[in-house]
Computed example of a mutant assay.
Amino acid sequence: MKLIPSYKYWIINFFGWILFALFMLTIDKITYGGGDSPNRMYYLLSEGVLCGILGFALSFIILYFIENYFNIGDYSKRDVYKLIAVVVITQVIYHSLLWPMLNIPANYFLNKSVDLTLLQKLTNVPHFLAYFIVWLFVVLTLKLVYYINTIKVKQLQLEANLKESQLNTLKGQINPHFMFNSLNNIRGLMLEDADVARNMLTNLSETLRYSLTKSELNSISLEDELEMVENYVEISKIQFEDRLQFETEIDQKSLNLQIPPMIIQMLIENSLKHGISNLKRGGKVSLSTLVTNNLLQIKVANSGTLQQSKNSTQLGVKNIKKRLELLYGQNATFTLIEIENEVVATIKIPIV
């Protein structure tokens, strides 16, 4: 939520500053005998208006900093110190301009200048500082409420996206073609090697169970995801046979890190569907993870070219990008490039 471009904020802020200054400054002085003459009362009224206008103008310095350099949802102590410094600078400017400005109505209505000692001016600092603190509290409250509502909306979008991801995955795994091929291949294996066939049935069962349970979670450990990927690859090897080579290079420090469920499985599925399946001689799929600079890098590379996937809907890629955006905002990245007849998909997410 940006307040500076909003004309409604300008109007409310302008009248808010003036009314607040009149209430806190002018009415208080008039009540205690400050308005014993018309000229004195006119001066006090103009004093309140000028204080309000000056506060209104200088408040945009603080607001500009908040909206461009202060993230209400992710700020550090350093950011707080910077905000305090901006408020202090604003106060210096405020008091440097205030007293010369007040001399104008004082000379006009009272035929004299505002004659205060440095100590008297300093004693007014907490009073005027209170105006900015009240205004700052209101602005930060508005932004915090907006941030909380935004988080709620993103959470709802994420839950909907995860449900969609779950359904898309189930469509890819529990469709008649997939089930028929898997079970038919397992049946053939039973005549050749009953133990291998039994292991394939276990892999198929674990894969389907994972898609029904784990995909409902917002995050899981990378180690759990790798277990599911291994089952998925073993099942796929029945179809691809010797055409599929699968390699992994896993950073041990990444095993316990949390990632979105089924995100690696989607990368592997895309590499098989749009890469290996289009190559008569098959190819290689490699999966690697790396922890560096507070980031977890997940990379899946497969033989093939991106041009072979032009006619696809890119549903899996769009799903991955959307989920990363909802979970991590701009802190996560996803790239899909071709390097020397190899398609490389890379995900980088912050370590929480």
Rank of each mutant, 00 (worst) to 15 (best):
A57P: 03
G329W: 10
E340W: 09
L189W: 10
I349R: 01
I27C: 00
N175D: 04
V285Q: 02
L272T: 04
L102T: 13
V317P: 05
R40V: 13
N39S: 15
K152E: 11
E234G: 06
S286W: 14
N168R: 00
A332P: 00
G52E: 09
G283M: 03
V145F: 04
V139C: 03
D242W: 11
K237W: 07
W17S: 08
I72G: 03
E192M: 11
P100L: 05
E216Y: 06
L167K: 02
Y64G: 12
G283I: 03
S46W: 04
I339T: 14
Y43F: 11
K299C: 11
L183M: 13
F334E: 03
G275H: 03
E159C: 06
V196P: 04
L315Q: 07
K348D: 00
R281W: 11
V285M: 02
E342H: 07
T333E: 02
L158P: 02
L287I: 10
T248R: 08
T313H: 08
S271W: 02
E342I: 02
D242F: 12
E249S: 04
L158D: 03
A197V: 12
S182A: 08
Y7T: 11
K121P: 05
F23P: 06
G316F: 03
A130G: 12
K112R: 09
P176E: 15
F246T: 01
L306V: 09
G73A: 13
